[in-house]
Structure formats: C-alpha cells, structure tokens
C-alpha cells in the first residue's frame, strides 16, 4: 500500500511538474516579429530582445536590433519573410501597418496584435500591453511607470513658466509641421509649449509661411531626417518678425527619440523641454524646490 501511494505521489509530482507553467510563462511567445521600430524598442526595453526573430529595416535602436533579420519596411512588410521566421506573435501598429497585409498575416494563421500609438497615453498603455503579451506584465507596468515619472518631472519643471508658442517641423523643403491629433502635439504641451498648428485637423501638414509669421512661434524646432542639420537659421533668416528667429531660438533636434512613439519618449520629452524652456533647466534649479524658472519672460 505504501509503495503504491509512493509511486502515485511520484507520478502526480511528475505530471504536475510537466503541466506547470514554465519559469518564463506558459504559452508566452518565444518568437516575435516586430513591424515597427517603436515596438522593437519597447521589446528590448522590456528585456525581451532575445525573443525577437524579425524586425523592419528601420529598426536601428538599440544597436542589437540592427543585427536582427529583416522582414521588410515599416509600411510594407514582406509576408514571406515574416512566415520564414516562424513567429508565434507578430506585433504591428494600427495606424501604420497596411490593413490588407494585416489580414493576410492573420489568414496565414499567425497571431497578430496591432497596437495604437496615437497619443502619449497609448504609448504607455502599449508598453503594458506588450509586456502582458510577452507574459511579464510586471516589467511592463514598471517601465511605463518610469516613463510616466519622467514625464511628470518635466511637467513640474516647466509648470511655472508661461507656455511658449512652438513650431515643431519635421521637414523644411517642403515644410511639414506637427498638427493636432498627434502625440507630438501632446509632447509639445507637456514640454511647456503651445503648438502653433494645434488647431489643424491633420496630424502632419504643410504650413504656408504666412501662417508661421502670423502665429509668431517663440521656439522653432526642426526634427526629422528632412531637416538640414547644418543651417537651421538660414531658412528663416528673412523672417525676422518671428520671435524665434529674432531671439535665436531655432534649434535642430536630429534625434528620433520623439519621432518614435516608444520607450524613449520620456527622454525625448525632456530634451525638447530643455529647448523650449532652457531657463527651467538651469543648473542649480530643482523642480522640487519650487523653482520659478529664472528669467522666464513670455
């Protein structure tokens, strides 16, 4: 009797160990294909970069991502390349991934998740969602909370200063500005600025010069690959009535931290805030000391 009980117990133990969720999470995807650079960055930031088996040609951050196999571009991924990687999860962005391609991916039997990255809140939520999909919800919540804290710190720092009219352009010829309904518009507000094209219905728009002159931005930031790194001020030289031009507050911001709705958004926000409100980041000023943003005029 004892022997039978002993063997049953052993059997039960073996069965339960085999059926128990693994240390990394039961059914958690091990082979992931990312269809967007921000998704790639998020997965790496969550510590699961080793599970990525396919990324887009634009995924270049962190450096390890460049060595991963490529499955096509941001807007037109290659279905064959995705299939070849045998993923058990494909993550894309709802605004960017071609819906026809998305349908095809699902039709081929692959598990596809599209996340929305239209607003700053969406970005934070997406980090949590992706972490959940990867079976590590705690990591996601922590990362999102860190980024949220970064955002809050910046908000507090620039709070005492008056909001500065800001133009954020991602290209000069032709001039493409950030409009409304764009997470970048939110970032500008969070950084203590006021997007001069916030009333636009489109997320990106061509702004005619007369409108820029009329709305008199106090800060002009040129971001994106379309900007001429060498000479930001030259383009505006003949429009001295614009405060940003007159007061030499035209900046080139070549980094894509803010252009990717991913985990570096907090860093990018702070860098932008330093451009819009340098006086609030002066050495010695600390947000928790009731800093008045020395020397802030309008």
């Amino acid at each position: 009797m004892k022997i039978i009980a002993g063997w049953s117990w052993l059997l039960a133990a073996i069965v339960s160990i085999a059926a128990a969720p693994s240390a990394r999470g039961a059914g958690a995807p091990q082979r992931i294909v990312s269809l967007a650079p921000s998704v790639t960055e998020t997965i790496f930031a969550l510590g699961f970069g080793d599970r990525l088996v396919g990324v887009t040609t634009y995924c270049d951050y962190p450096a390890a991502a460049r060595r991963l196999p490529k499955i096509g571009s941001f807007t037109s991924p290659s279905l064959e390349a995705i299939l070849a990687r045998r993923p058990d999860l494909v993550i894309g962005v709802s605004s960017a991934t071609d819906p026809a391609a998305a349908r095809e991916i699902e039709r081929l039997g692959l598990k596809l998740r599209l996340i929305s990255l239209a607003a700053v809140g969406d970005i934070l939520r997406s980090i949590v969602n992706i972490a959940q999909l990867l079976g590590a919800p705690q990591t996601g919540t922590t990362l999102a909370a860190n980024i949220q804290a970064q955002i809050e710190r910046v908000k507090r720092r620039v709070a005492p200063a008056p909001r500065r009219a800001t133009l954020l352009a991602v290209g000069l010829r032709p001039l493409v500005a950030v409009g409304g309904k764009n997470y970048l518009d939110e970032l500008i507000t969070l950084a203590g600025g006021k997007n001069i094209a916030a009333d636009a219905a489109q997320p990106w728009l061509n702004l005619p010069d007369e409108l820029i002159v009329a709305r008199a931005p106090q800060v002009i930031i040129e971001a994106g690959w379309g900007s001429d790194r060498g000479a930001p001020a030259r383009h505006w030289r003949d429009l001295q009535s614009i405060p940003a031009v007159r007061e030499r507050r035209v900046y080139v911001y070549p980094s894509d931290k803010i252009l990717r709705p991913g985990p570096r958004i907090g860093e990018g926000l702070e860098e932008i805030a330093r451009l819009i409100h340098p006086e609030c980041f002066a050495p010695g000023a600390r947000a928790d000391q009731g800093n008045r943003c020395e020397g802030s005029r309008s």
């Binding site: 941001f74 991602v170 290209g171 010829r173 001039l175 493409v176 690959w225 379309g226």
Partner: peptide
Amino acid sequence: VDFYQAQGLLFWLMGSLS
C-alpha cells in the same frame, strides 16, 4: 522612402508654389 521623404515626393507629384 521613409515618411519624411514621402512628403517631399508629394511636392514633386502635386506641386507647390511655396
């Protein structure tokens, strides 16, 4: 092309007097 170059493409295809 990437997103930013695509805007430039639009200039060539649809014109602008700016």
